[in-house]
Design a protein around this nucleic acid. Sequence first.
DNA 1: TTTTTTCTACTGATTTTTAGGTATTTTAAT
DNA 2: ATTAAAATACCTAAAAATCAGTAGAAAAAA
Lengths: 209, 209
Amino acid sequence: MAKLLTAIVDDHPIVIEGLKVLLQNEENLQLVGGFCNGSAILSYISTNQVDLILLDITLPDINGIELCQQIKDISIATVVLILSNHTERSIIMQTIQNGASGYLLKNSSVDELRHCISEAVKGNICYSKEVMEIISRPSKNHIQDMPRLTRREKEILALIAAGKTSQVIGQELFLSPLTIDTHRKNLIQKFGVKNVAELIMTATQQQIL
Amino acid sequence: MAKLLTAIVDDHPIVIEGLKVLLQNEENLQLVGGFCNGSAILSYISTNQVDLILLDITLPDINGIELCQQIKDISIATVVLILSNHTERSIIMQTIQNGASGYLLKNSSVDELRHCISEAVKGNICYSKEVMEIISRPSKNHIQDMPRLTRREKEILALIAAGKTSQVIGQELFLSPLTIDTHRKNLIQKFGVKNVAELIMTATQQQIL
DNA sequence: TTTTTTCTACTGATTTTTAGGTATTTTAAT
DNA sequence: ATTAAAATACCTAAAAATCAGTAGAAAAAA
């Protein structure tokens, strides 16, 4: 069996170097490189074969969730394993939805990493212990998932978070302030909150802002 | 010259392992261990000599900023170098105030890490390039430091973030709603924002909520 | 092409917040 | 013991947000 061509994508050089060393002794892995951003790995896989990618969510250019999708678009056979610090249920789910084969937190043990890699290349989906708990029994912080927001809603949410009133937002977007009020109302309803204070709080917790 | 006895404190095993390997070839360093939490390193240094500690801010038990102080209380000669992801000016300043000899972001290059270690053990304070920029020319996100909030203000800020109105907060704290309005006003003024939306946004960005 | 979703805009009433202040009491620090 | 800071509470008035609806036009999906 040929060695798995493996790439690491993480914005922390130290993590990349660390993972490289940790994995260089693995019998069935062949490291092809470490990448600090999304475009680097995308351009690499367009011309080179990569069997396995260890992918971080937080990257300087592209969001890891979308990057996952783009990787699978270019190379459907490449197995993507997420290695992230984000503990939000919705983020985990989105990555799997976008074709990832597993999700580990960075505080996973090295054994867990090894195990998940071997499961993932077998075609199974694999989570680290802690992630398994997050997706199984939703605890206090992970009760509600992120509501689906429309483009306009996201735009207006950001402007509200910047402290702008409906009047001002209306002027900026060339819309009636009454329209902004409607969006405001819909945002509050979608998030199931009582007012903007709670709205902004919830949205930031869910990484929307 | 004897080798520097060096410890790594980070809640990510992968980072610990990575740093270990990266530093094991350094001539003048002798790694004494990796620690996943604050109490582990504290109990270690009470009975063992440690010359240099690479310290993360986010830890499962104790906050790294306070841990830094506690380390220096036990062993004033131990050099502490912060290795963190937090880019908030106030956090950086607090660690230095608490006795740290330098601050690096985790996306620093390995060379920068080496350089900062050598500077720190010489007795100098050393920052990575990016951190230097944060503390030198405060950019958009780091303009204002965290204002000093009183106990009451923090308490009320949290209740506002939970979506409660002044009426409700007043009832809960057995205070006049007018008093809550005053605190609300003071919070908005202290943070230099226009309304609660921006207040909550700013407060979360500065890790106060 | 039809259906559904999103975006737009409105009415009217009510609640809440914000802006300008002032002022007394309590608590903490010197 | 004195000073400074924090916490309390109030007034007036304007601005903004929230609630509870409806509804047409545009865009996207089926």
